[in-house]
């Protein structure tokens, strides 16, 4: 390509080297974008009517109204309780689940069932699960706890099963060589290797569950979310802001505790 002396052209290689494919990607991509933005039905009229509403919204939001303080802290406590119960339930159930879903330990039949359960539990956002449980079992923290336990179990089961699949086989073999039975092999060969990960995940799970527990109340599954939803619907935006601040504070506190504990464990 480069002859000595002669003027040589240099152009950066394109990201997609095949020019036909490149143009197809560009055209299809921009056509989709134009269509999708167009499909939003975004128009300035709505922006214009929306603006005063937004201004009104902010005016009503400030200052935050803490007069219903007891309602807020009851809601927050309920969220906390739901998160604690659901985390406890799911970290215990996650042990058999992850053993069943670990390819190096489980048998094929059990493995498939466990993995199917994990995929199912992980695919639906907690809110969707919550709405179904509320429809089935009525309002309150009970369907909320079920929701959090279900989704958390999927999360924990998957990560723990991966941790088990990545263990050092030599240690398991050594324990097996002593003549230990299946249960003792798990206890001495597997458990010590995944225990730090298990504890770390448990605390992370509490963090995740607390976040979710503050929100699933929107569909009636208990916790502070219900109060938030009601405040919005009664146009009490100052109360809504107070609740929102409370949520942000406990979420941040939990995140802080969780990351502190996890970094101490390492």
């Amino acid at each position: 390509m480069s002859d000595t002396g002669a003027s040589t052209v240099w152009k950066r290689d394109h990201f997609i080297k095949n020019p036909i494919l490149r143009w197809i990607v560009i055209l299809v991509g921009s056509a989709y974008l134009i269509y999708a933005i167009n499909d939003m039905n975004f128009n300035l009229d709505r922006m214009r009517t929306g603006w005063p509403r937004a201004v009104d919204f902010f005016q009503r939001m400030f200052p935050p109204d803490y007069s219903r303080w007891t309602m807020i802290y009851k809601g927050v406590f309920e969220s906390l309780q739901m998160a604690i119960i659901a985390t406890t339930v799911s970290i215990f159930l996650a042990i058999p689940l992850s053993l069943a879903a670990a390819a190096n330990i489980s048998v094929k039949f059990v493995y498939v069932i466990a993995r199917a359960f994990i995929v199912l539990a992980r695919s639906f956002p907690p809110i969707l699960v919550a709405i179904m449980f509320v429809k089935a079992f009525g309002f309150g923290p009970f369907p909320g706890i079920l929701t959090l336990s279900f989704t958390a179990l999927g999360f924990m089961g998957k990560l723990l099963a991966e941790a088990i699949e990545n263990i050092d086989k030599g240690q398991v073999e050594a324990v097996r060589a002593t003549g230990a039975n299946w249960f003792k092999v798990q206890l001495y060969g597997v458990a010590p290797q995944v225990l730090p990960r298990y504890v770390g995940l448990s605390i992370y799970l509490l963090d995740i569950n607390l976040r979710a527990s503050t929100i699933i109340g929107i569909v009636g599954a208990g916790g502070i979310g219900g109060a938030l939803f009601n405040a919005f619907h009664r146009y009490e935006y100052d109360t809504a802001l107070a609740i929102l601040i409370a949520i942000i504070v406990i979420v941040l506190v939990m995140e802080f505790i969780s990351s502190k504990v996890r970094s101490r464990l390492q």
Binding site: S2, T4, S7, T8, V9, W10
Partner: peptide
Amino acid sequence: AVDEAFSLLE
């Protein structure tokens, strides 16, 4: 600059 780059690389 491109020309010079080619000759320096060589």
